[in-house]
Amino acid sequence: MGNPVTATRETWGPIAQGMALTLKHFTQMIVARDKTSVTVQYPEERREQYPRTRWRHALTRHEDGLEKCIGCSLCAGACPARCIYVEAAENSDERRFSPGERFAARYEINMLRCIFCGYCQEACPTGAITLRKDFELADHHRADFLYTKQMLLEPTPAPGAAG
């Protein structure tokens, strides 16, 4: 660092290089408005996500509206963050939530703990829990990050609108 010339070159050189790149993109965006632009005007504009993006969970339904989740707790067993809580109960013909004998009476995910690894989706024997692309998960209170079954469950398909 003794040589002032070398020091000046090593300090200002990279800065100038970086600024040049910024300037290039800036002009491209302002002048050319081409597809290579880096910044998107979120939230009005949204970048398309990769097909295997994993964000917010959803509990899906069969076409007839029955829940796919059978309350088997395999997702909770696979979860490395231990953030899923499942309590099962028995279906009856009068109160039927899912095909077969068992359904999830409680299904909760602590989103603060979730690391979005997707193991739950991998473990699910019925394809009930899926990680989708909804990534806007910020909230104001800690308690609001405890997603309940009602929050996670897909809405019931409208009659006749299946498919």
Partner: peptide
């Protein structure tokens, strides 16, 4: 005990 828990719970 039926459906109350899985062993890992």
């Amino acid at each position: 005990y039926r459906f109350r828990a899985r062993p890992w719970d």
